[in-house]
Design a protein around this nucleic acid. Structure first.
Lengths: 353, 353
DNA sequence: CTGTTAGCGCGTTCAG
DNA sequence: CTGAACGCGCTAACAG
């Protein structure tokens, strides 16, 4: 492994000169620069990250904290891990993935050992112990999903608007009896943001539409969910559309629909809210995708901005409002709420029976 | 941020003493140890990872290289990212996630800057450019999924045995007309290991069973898949079971089955091969899960073993054969092939019609 | 045997 | 453009 000294020697200059060539933080004569560059190429030199970090106390690494419930797995977590990594790369950052059972041991360890410059927290719960830890350590961070209590920057899909939009569009397609399958009961009980906001959206849309909307809460137990669903679909006159926010059980749910003898979308339209983009298996369904890419980009930027904000004491200068990003300009630069958009095929009309 | 000097000062000892207390690499009197420990606790001291790494050239980080195809997302990638992180933690390692479009730029950068001690590569293709890079840099690595050409350690599910088992069990449940939906056409054409081995397994099982097995290759395009599937299910006498290896399109596939007016499992048994464990939505289906946890544990260990092997020049001493790990003992310690196991409910018998 | 001193690893940056 | 100090922890050699 070549070091900066080897390069300097080969180029016939001092190590500091090589450093200045690399960083560009000082004028270097063209001749010298070329000699140095040649030496670098010949030796295949690459600066040691640890040495850099030791000097500068910058790692160019973001810690991504994924919550972990043993025996459960949420596809969304893995998806964000990948997308945040892509997004962070765009800003010159790598991502260190950390998983936490409960407590915030790993996050604390990573922060204190200086393995990362900032953290991105997924799926924030109310009174998340990790937020406490971040605060205590003064570690910069941004959140995926929001919690009105936390004083941290965040990004999120506007779940209230999303559910409302899905229901409105379903009604606009002609459906008059709609079932909204909300988040699972235990998530509502825990007052998870997306769960509560989804319900709010359903209420709002119900009030303003002529269609009759029946709200059904999902359940983590597939049996229970199947039972509830069959019951709701057995009502007469039969509902003609199902708007679904709880997607973890989707295959099971489609199975239950099928067992009930209903074809999708001929007998029953199924509309998804919060689905993962690019999932090939659901391309045939109308839906509102979770804007994973946009959220990932936003959260990476927020976390990185928080780094300088932490050292300055002030939030970073809003980098000249970029020319109309795809969605609404955030009122507060530290919060990025994303407008929902329909995707996939149009919602089929109800059966003409 | 407290340093080792601060701790030493507070405890009234030399910095080296603190270091020895931390590493335990030397006897320290009980009194001194306690004084040092107290100082550490009071200051909340944690050694700087960068300083450690600079000295020892050990990062205790594994790089996990996830292949990335823009606009496509494989749920399995995210899942492994999480599980490998858990597994690595068990060995005292953190995981740096890197995504690569094509080429191996990120992997090369991470290896050369010394951000990680070894790499774990997901989903190896034939002639993967990343393997070339690893070899050229002499960077230790292990693979998730295997490729007979690569001279690197790997772990994998025995896909051939898995498909064979699924078909045998389906036949044993009484089915006489079985459709095997293999991997997607383009994966077979690319001679992906799991795709080819799955087909081999189907052939083998077909030869030894009385049931008639029709092999159908999947397609990345949901339309095409739907078409093929409907055709296969329309044959008379009708097949009574569907063994599926290509799970990316599962919801779509279940939709197609449902549209064909078939209920699962009353009219058609669906058996999955290579499903993700703990997925709530498929608990109602008989299946062979991809042993993600076991593969992750294995690959983390293989990668870590490769680190010392790299510096020694020799593979690490086989750590006394642990008392019967859940699956078969690998013939070669550098290869870990996992026996398939059925999970979920029993396969339903064919309709008595 | 327990503790201390000193040099090292490598790149950055300020004063020269 | 160069010299040298510095960031922080590890560890070999040495002292009590």
């Amino acid at each position: 492994m070549a070091t900066i000294k080897d390069v300097a020697e080969r180029a016939g200059v001092a190590p500091s000169t090589v450093s200045y060539v690399l960083s560009g933080s000082r004028k270097i004569s063209e001749d010298t620069r070329r000699a140095v560059q040649a030496a670098i190429d010949e030796l295949g030199y690459h600066p040691r990250a640890s040495a850099r970090t030791l000097r500068s106390s910058r790692t160019n690494v973001l810690a991504l904290a994924v919550p972990r419930v043993p025996g459960e797995y949420r596809a969304i977590d893995g998806r964000f891990a990948i997308d945040v990594t892509d997004a962070a790369r765009g800003h010159g950052y790598d991502v260190l993935l950390i998983t936490e059972g409960d407590g915030a041991g790993a996050l604390r360890r990573v922060a204190r050992s200086g393995l990362a410059d900032a953290a991105v927290l997924m799926a924030v719960e109310e009174r998340d112990p990790r937020i406490e830890v971040l605060h205590e350590l003064g570690f910069p961070a941004a959140l995926l999903g929001h919690d009105d209590h936390a004083a941290l920057p965040w990004t999120d899909l506007d779940w209230e608007a999303a559910v409302a939009l899905a229901i409105r569009e379903t009604a606009a397609a002609g459906h008059r009896r709609i079932v909204f399958l909300s988040s699972a009961e235990h998530e509502i009980a825990a007052r998870r943001g997306y769960a509560v906001r989804g319900l709010d959206g359903a209420r709002g849309a119900t009030a303003e539409t002529e269609a009759e909307v029946r709200v059904l809460s999902s359940h983590r137990d597939p049996e229970k969910l199947g039972h509830r669903l069959r019951e709701a679909l057995a009502v007469r006159p039969a509902p003609t559309a199902l708007v679904v926010q709880d997607l973890i059980l989707l295959p099971h749910l489609l199975g239950a629909v099928s067992s009930a003898g209903l074809r999708v979308p001929e007998d029953l339209s199924v509309v998804l809210v919060g689905s993962l983009p690019d999932e090939l298996g659901i391309r045939h369904l109308p839906r509102i995708d979770l804007p994973v890419a946009e959220m990932s980009t936003a959260v990476a930027r927020l976390a990185i901005d928080a780094i300088s904000a932490g050292s300055d004491g002030r939030p970073p200068s809003s980098q000249k409002p970029t020319a109309a990003p795809a969605s609404t300009a955030p009122a507060d630069a530290r919060h990025h709420l994303i407008e929902p958009r329909m995707a996939g095929p149009a919602i089929a009309p109800p059966p003409s029976g």
